[in-house]
């Protein structure tokens, strides 16, 4: 019994709507002509969420539950879901019924057109300006750096091919940017408008400080994908400007010394040479160490950030 679809729902103190959620999910699931599973991840809830999951588990065989020791945040909950999912396709959605499970078939239809990731787009979302602005800025930066154009990164309702998410090294607040991260490995990303219901209680936080964190994560991810199999190359490229500067300042320092220019200035050029040389040597040294780390790791290169691939049908030879 091969499972095709895994639906992952992170839950944090959702005892009020968990029943409705499961009902809606199973109602959608009945229409599927393939096997599916629902993975409910209890993100350290302090209410009866877990007991309710255990209760429902007895009647619904497709249901699976993961319970965290404490609250780790939505990203961790989703990553735990990815780690335990058996399906070829993974769908994530919010536990607070802001997303409509009835949209899942639409995502899957779109995926059949040849996409690896289909993101939901809350087209008719009305939010306060103060929440939209930072998210706009972050979206802008991420679109520029990754080349993925999405209207709505924040929407939890997304469908992924399982291969695409397994290679993502995610933490912190990164679940918003799974499509952007995955696109760096070659995944084809698109979006479709989905239903969105207003949040009944609680506020989602999204501030400027997170932009910095996300930016540093994207930077790291980008470099790792590009250079994890040839780290010395990456570090050497960074070192090139410093090597050039060392040569440049070094020549001037020698000239200044030979022509006996004013001593203050020649000292400056000497120090500038020294500083640039230090930076260059440090970078090259780090590059070599990085090469050692990668070379000694027990991951084979195929396990390195995986570039997503698609099968191209080979037409049979006509004779």
């Amino acid at each position: 019994m091969k499972i095709f679809l895994s639906i992952i729902v992170p839950l944090y103190n959702e005892e009020t709507c968990i029943k409705k959620l499961i009902d809606k999910l199973t109602a959608v699931g009945e229409k599927f002509d393939f096997n599916y599973e629902i993975i409910l991840v209890d993100d350290g809830s302090t209410d009866r969420t877990w007991q309710l999951i255990e209760q429902h588990k007895q009647f619904i065989p497709q249901l699976r539950g993961i319970k965290f020791r404490r609250n780790y945040g939505q990203t961790c909950a989703m990553v735990a879901g990815f780690d335990h999912a058996n399906g070829e396709v993974i769908v994530t959605l919010d536990g607070d019924l802001q997303n409509d499970p009835a949209d899942i078939p639409l995502l899957l239809d779109k995926m059949r057109e040849g996409y690896d990731i289909v993101s939901g787009w809350r087209k008719y979302r009305k939010d306060h300006f103060s929440r939209v602005l930072p998210s706009r800025i972050a979206n802008g930066i991420i679109s520029r750096t990754t080349g993925v154009q999405l209207h709505d990164y924040g929407c939890s309702l997304k469908a992924y091919k399982a291969d695409c998410v397994r290679s993502i090294n995610a933490y912190g607040e990164m679940h918003r940017f799974f499509p952007a991260l995955a696109s760096m490995t070659g995944a084809r990303v698109t979006e479709i408008p989905v239903n969105h219901y207003p949040r009944e209680f609680g506020v989602s936080k999204y501030g400027f400080d997170r932009i910095f964190k996300v930016f540093s994560d994207i930077f790291a991810m980008n470099l790792i994908i590009r250079f994890s199999s040839t780290p010395l190359l990456g570090f050497s490229l960074c070192a090139v400007p410093f090597i050039l500067a060392t040569c440049f300042f070094g020549c001037i320092a020698v000239l200044a010394e030979l022509n006996q220019w004013i001593s203050g200035k020649s000292l400056f050029f000497f120090f500038a040479t020294a500083l640039n040389a230090i930076a260059a040597i440090h970078l090259l040294g780090n590059g070599v160490i990085a090469e050692l780390i990668v070379g000694n790791s027990d991951l084979s290169h195929t396990k390195m950030p995986e570039i997503t691939k698609k099968e191209i049908k080979v037409a049979p030879h006509e004779k």
Binding site: E54, R64, I66, K67, F68, Y72, A80, H84
Partner: peptide, 9 residues
Amino acid sequence: KEYNIDKII
């Protein structure tokens, strides 16, 4: 892993 799992059912 960054998370710690208490139980899986």
